[in-house]
Design a binder for these strands. Sequence first.
DNA 1: CATTAATTTGCGGGGTACGCAACTTTTCTC
DNA 2: GAGAAAAGTTGCGTACCCCGCAAATTAATG
Lengths: 209, 209
Amino acid sequence: MSPDPAAPLGLRERKKRAARRAMSEAALKLAMEKGVEQVRVEDIATAVGVSPRTFNNYFSSKEEAICSFIVERQELLREALRERPVEETLWEAVGTATVEAYGSLGEPNRGSVELARSLLLHPSVQGEFLKAHAKVEQVLADAILERAGAGPENALNARLMAAIVESAVKTAFFSWLIDEGSRPFLETLDVLLHEAAAGIPSLTGPDQK
Amino acid sequence: MSPDPAAPLGLRERKKRAARRAMSEAALKLAMEKGVEQVRVEDIATAVGVSPRTFNNYFSSKEEAICSFIVERQELLREALRERPVEETLWEAVGTATVEAYGSLGEPNRGSVELARSLLLHPSVQGEFLKAHAKVEQVLADAILERAGAGPENALNARLMAAIVESAVKTAFFSWLIDEGSRPFLETLDVLLHEAAAGIPSLTGPDQK
DNA sequence: CATTAATTTGCGGGGTACGCAACTTTTCTC
DNA sequence: GAGAAAAGTTGCGTACCCCGCAAATTAATG
């Protein structure tokens, strides 16, 4: 029925993944080059040598395909968290795992800020962007709950914590995207995670007013 | 050119707002009654006595109209924050303002959880739901920055804090929507805001492991 | 191999979103 | 107030999207 994740992965499954990946990459590439509006589903489908109908079997919109790369960090993030030593605090573990998971892709390329901005700030993409992060958030919440102990009293807090972590990620990314002279993304992310963990004490200045 | 927000509001502006409101209400009502999929733009337009084309002058999709009520809390929230006494901590002020802003609408009606759930969990609505919250978040960030002092060093933290607050709202609402036997929304929200302010210390149990 | 199960694809239909160009209504100005 | 100007509404046309369905193609299985 559902594919055994432990199995060596037959041709079938590999093809499917490859197709999916090809489509999302093509979607992102084309959207960067020509602008979201100027890319039709047909263009993407043609670019990867598949029918438009098939594209819609994989993604329910081109925007979803464009934002698909975000969702793919799920695995990375969950694994990173699982590998944190048990001695660490929850925040230490989650924070490090998050920075690791996003860091493994390297600092995002400064050269394409312009393009990324016009892409991600486009209304039709923004919704999918947020949905993608919501999916990651969901996975993260589960992973946190797993680590903290799955008591029902932890469930809510785990979800909140995951939401907060994703908030930090989104805010850091947003800052990188908007603020011309901002620090590198990973640095900002690290700072924000620490702020969040401490309840943002440093707002209103370091010298508690 | 752009309408003066201080002016007494001419007939023109009032009509526009009324129309907008009518449309968003009709959209929400119809979607609850018949299900999102079963409502066409034309239905909504007809319900408020306007042409479909006009509907699209106001909203760029029916989903946006459905989620419009969320965005309308902007004003409420900003005003609530402005009216918090200066003696209060940032978190006190923001937390109270948030609970107030959402509380002024009363505890959401338990009877319609079913419907609300099937509505908001629907993929096509979820994106707009998140976008709506993102807009509120933006306004909240500005309001926080205004209160904390608009130094450039505060800008990032203000955005993070706004994001965290909205995370609490979304998580509380989500919990209300999903967990059958959850506490009342406003209560959960209050708890989560306190947790967030403290960096969620109570995860992994009250007795710090 | 021959079955069986999963994927791809074309077709068709119901909708959506928006530019454009009349046409109305409110607002402005004298 | 009357006429000009600005803003809003509407119908039409177009391009595009999303998905159900059924036939054709391709992998998996014994």
